[in-house]
Write a protein that binds this DNA or RNA. Structure first.
Lengths: 253, 253
DNA sequence: AAATCATAGTGTATAATTGACACAATTGTA
DNA sequence: TACAATTGTGTCAATTATACACTATGATTT
């Protein structure tokens, strides 16, 4: 929660720069050590949790706004961002309304506005992100998907909807390019799919299918390190990957 | 294009009632005599074509606004409406901006606003609609999908995107309930799928698959009339249909 | 009344895909 | 040098998709 002064300053800037009534919220999925993570913000001095979001500049394309917001929070650029739903329940920002309504008259109070929010999800390489809190957030951090805080507003719904959309996307588009490191092994990629789908897949069948999509290149060098056979390294064949993004696959999981 | 007086009146009402910067556009698909149709509006005295759209009341849920708009245009109520994308290019309503910018000062000119539009598509029974032009539209009518007018704004893009979304939906959800009459024959339903997908399907395989979904009930009475064997009539098993809408199917076409 | 036409209903053989499953190979460690 | 861990790969069976042809029925024509 903001102080009165912070609120007033913020509202002034906001009204000047942003399109009213519209926000963007991002569900940023990361993947690390076999667990799906989500980027969450915690507000200074409060036990208030949000998804990273923000507002759209008055003349900014939506896509660009989503990218800017993502970049401000994670340092990541040029990432696959997928618009998945608009949330517009008139009551959805009630909590903010209640929180701030007495601190500033409605006319100049940005947070007494009704907001529709456009949901985007992103898939990023956990290792390459630098979660950076903004001026309001004390912490910006990764949380396991199965150890989430209680979100404010409708952000729990947004997250759930994003996850459903992601699972659906798995059925007709390739994923992984922004989520995996440049090079990865087949078992690592499989783990990603298993994590998103929350179920075990057969190693051999997964490999056959995955290779069948034709979006992977096998590298020359295997990965060494474990007390076991060295797995092959793969990377995405970007040309085919992008084509598949546009065209879509056939079957599903 | 509106006259100055019309514009002024309209802007006053709009500013009072509607959420600024946001609109809804509906792609209403109908199906008749084996052709997929789309509902289009033509503006009075001009050769200007649009998809039916409108604005959202200040406290109205998005879904409800879409339904209201659809009802105002077609008389149809409680129809499957699917949100599919938000279009937000800052230049997308440039034509309107140019058209109206000199007629009213920007402050009170609704159309100098930037608008994001939320795209919905609907599937309706062609026969039960009563396309009704609103105050600005001279004609509101069905047009064949392959005989479309040149749309204003980005409405051609919206239509194309809706069609893509519809084709995708075919792969994991049942369709047809709002698009077909209460009772229909298997060949009629097949024709719908063929039309949407724009390709021929095998009669026998279609039937097997369709019945496999378990969303159809065979009626007792066949349909008579043609100089041929009377086909069975089917209707949707709403309970299973709704379940399938939520759950989704497996494979694709 | 019989023949014909148009279109519906249904089944089957073959090919392709998916799912289940087991064994051999490699690397590091004990 | 044996062992533990994990990878790579192949095959068979079951399922699913595809291609295809004949029979049935109702209206129309002769």
């Amino acid at each position: 929660m903001l102080t009165k002064k912070e609120l007033k300053d913020y509202c002034a800037t906001a009204r000047e720069n942003y399109l009213p009534h519209i926000s963007i919220d991002c569900v940023v999925f990361g993947f690390h050590e076999g667990v799906l993570k989500v980027l969450v913000l915690k507000v200074k001095n409060e036990n208030e949790w949000y998804l990273p979001g923000g507002f759209m500049l008055k003349k900014e394309p939506i896509e660009m706004a989503a990218n800017r917001i993502l970049k401000e929070r994670t340092g990541l650029d040029e990432i696959f961002l997928q618009q998945f739903h608009v949330f517009g329940d008139p009551e959805r920002s009630k909590e903010h309304f209640e929180m701030y309504k007495d601190m500033l008259p409605a006319k100049e109070n940005w947070f007494t506005n009704r907001f529709l929010t456009i949901g985007y999800y992103a898939l990023v390489d956990f290792c390459e992100t630098n979660p950076a809190p903004d001026q309001f957030a004390a912490t910006c951090s990764w949380r396991d998907l199965n150890d989430l805080p209680e979100f404010k507003l409708d952000h729990a719904l947004i997250l759930k909807t994003a996850l459903d959309a992601l699972r659906l996307q798995l059925n007709y588009q390739p994923i992984g390019y922004n989520l995996m490191p440049k090079q990865f092994t087949m078992p690592e990629l499989q783990k990603l799919y298993e994590t998103i789908l929350d179920k075990k897949l057969d190693r051999r069948n997964f490999q056959r299918r995955m290779l069948g999509f034709g979006i992977l290149k096998r590298e020359d060098q295997p990965r060494k390190g474990g007390a076991h056979k060295a797995p092959y390294l793969y990377s995405f064949d970007l040309e085919n990957y992008d084509a598949a993004l546009k065209e879509g696959f056939k079957g599903g999981w």
